[in-house]
């Protein structure tokens, strides 16, 4: 019995809902061009029992999810473990995805929760020395490149000292370029609180970088 079959019982409710909404049934999902399908179609196909739809979701979003996780932990192994955890949780929780936001926003939410949980139980990892020295010595201005690399390391270390929610807000805003509304959705707070978090994150960073 396949794993996807084993959870089919859990997905019946979602499948019924998908059929009611006129979305893809398993038989229809077979004929969909899943790789080109929109996320909402993939979700409906997955809830209707298509395991290929979930594979496409993973393929489509794995890089973004991995990057979010990496920016939290600055470590490839941990980031890949976290990203894997995000998709396993997504697999189990997609039936609860209501489609109010984009799938990517929902995955961000799952990812940030995974990362915050990890940070809550684990000391923040220090950045490995080799990643601090990844400077191309052949560049036109090696000295400048070294200085830029050092600055980047300083910034990353300072970000690593921020309180988790401030860090999450900053990462989502600056690197993932989410709007304040999307960040509020991911963090489960008001837009005002998201902006306040960002303001405090920047203020704390300024102090950390000056010290």
């Amino acid at each position: 019995m396949g794993a996807y079959t084993a959870v089919a019982v859990e997905q019946r409710a979602g499948m019924t809902a998908a059929r009611r909404a006129g979305e893809a049934t398993p038989r229809q999902a077979d004929h969909l061009d899943l790789a080109a399908a929109e996320d909402r179609v993939l979700v409906a196909a997955f809830l209707a029992g298509s395991r290929e739809a979930f594979d496409v979701i993973v393929t489509r979003h794995q890089r973004t999810v991995y990057q979010v996780c990496f920016r939290f932990v600055r470590n490839h192994e941990e980031a890949s473990d976290l990203a894997q955890d995000v998709f396993v949780r997504a697999f189990k929780g997609l039936k609860n995805f209501k489609g109010d936001s984009a799938l990517s926003t929902w995955l961000y939410r799952v990812g940030v929760n995974c990362c915050l949980n990890r940070l809550a139980v684990k000391r923040p990892a220090t950045e490995p020395i080799d990643s601090m020295q990844l400077v191309d010595q052949r560049s036109a201005d090696p000295l400048r490149a070294v200085m830029r690399g050092e600055k980047a390391t300083e910034v990353r270390q300072a970000i690593g000292q921020l309180p988790p929610k401030q860090r999450a807000t900053l990462l989502l805003r600056v690197y993932q370029e989410l709007s304040h509304e999307e960040i509020a959705g991911v963090m489960g707070c008001s837009v005002g609180a998201a902006k306040a978090n960002l303001f405090h994150a920047l203020g704390n960073l300024r102090r950390l970088l000056q010290s």
Partner: peptide, 11 residues
Amino acid sequence: DVSQGGDVPEP
């Protein structure tokens, strides 16, 4: 400054 520190090495 923050925008300089966001590189993620491509696996």
